[in-house]
């Protein structure tokens, strides 16, 4: 498991970004791989969100002989060990996978930004305490911790998303803290303070919007990380048995892999393409929002 802390290093210090969204989009759209990622992401989203309306085979229905290879029946990608349609599983599982990824990422961002913002803005003992908490989560292997949490509260979709969120916010917190440390002594922040603005307003309404670009990148990437995380948990058997997800498909079909390479390969490819699309878009955003690179 890798967390998306890479952006700590990719993100150059920024001047107050006055560049309008249009300039960012111009930058982004001139980046071929980013556009490719965006298109790929759109395809994945259409596949998972519109797919169930078009392809109406229930993912839990036993439709054909178990372990039928792709292209040998009307079920294009073959069937799994229960004779369920793999394609239907991919289409319906995508929604769950993306939902888990997105909600876990949201939680990651909420916790990470809150802790990072408070630590970076107030400094002193607050910073010290919150950074110790961050370190605490950093020295523990996050997958093990998530496994413990999922087992504690049983493997439901919500609990899985919460467990992933709880163990993966540290890099976001560090990133946010760094941004806040840098921005809190900026002139416009001082100006706000001198006119008597409340801390709460300064943190959330003044500094945060200016710290947003790297956080947006981080948020995008953490969706990908969360999807990989879900797959890892499912592979270890920690998935919700009542909902299909890509990770669960890999975990469930893995024992049958010798007779059905398709059962684990297709969901693996789906995860791979989705995370790849997210990474490409995240990278593109990073470049587009990063003024230093823009000069090049």
């Amino acid at each position: 498991m890798i967390d998306s802390s890479l952006d700590n290093f990719n993100t150059e210090p920024m001047e107050k970004p006055a560049s309008p969204a249009r300039q960012t989009w111009k930058m982004f759209s001139s980046n071929q791989s980013a556009v490719a990622g965006l298109i790929l992401l759109a395809i994945v989203l259409i596949f998972s969100l519109v797919g169930p309306l078009v392809y109406q085979v229930a993912p839990t229905e036993m439709v054909w002989m178990p372990l039928t290879p792709p292209l040998e029946s009307e079920y294009l990608l073959g069937t799994d060990y229960l004779g369920r349609d793999i394609l239907a599983g991919l289409i319906n599982g995508g929604r769950i996978t993306i939902a888990i990824g997105a909600s876990a990422a949201l939680l990651t961002i909420v916790i990470g930004v809150t802790i990072g913002a408070l630590a970076g803005y107030y400094g002193g003992w607050v910073d010290n305490l919150l950074m110790r908490v961050t370190e605490f989560f950093q020295v523990l292997p996050n997958l093990l911790l998530a496994m413990v949490v999922v087992m504690l509260f049983s493997a439901t979709l919500t609990n899985i998303a919460i467990a992933i969120g709880i163990v993966s916010w540290t890099s976001t917190a560090r990133l946010t803290r760094a941004e806040f440390l840098r921005l809190r002594s900026m002139d416009y922040v001082r100006a706000e303070r001198s006119i008597g603005a409340k801390n709460r307003r300064i943190i959330w309404a003044v500094i945060l919007p200016n710290a947003a670009p790297p956080l947006i990148v981080s948020a995008a990437l953490s969706i990908g990380t969360a999807i990989l995380f879900e797959a890892g948990l499912a592979f270890l058997g920690l998935s919700d048995p009542n909902n299909m997800s890509w990770g669960r498909m890999i975990g469930d079909n893995r024992p049958y892999i010798l007779d059905s390479w398709w059962g684990v390969t297709f969901p693996g490819i789906a995860i791979f393409l989705t995370v790849l699309a997210i990474s490409l878009v995240g990278d593109g955003l990073n470049d587009a929002l990063n003024p230093k690179l823009r000069k090049r």
Partner: peptide
């Protein structure tokens, strides 16, 4: 959890 390879598919079949 102790005979998941038998009970998993059986349970999923019963559910369906």
């Amino acid at each position: 959890s102790w005979a998941k390879q038998a009970h998993g598919p059986m349970g999923e079949y019963i559910q369906s």
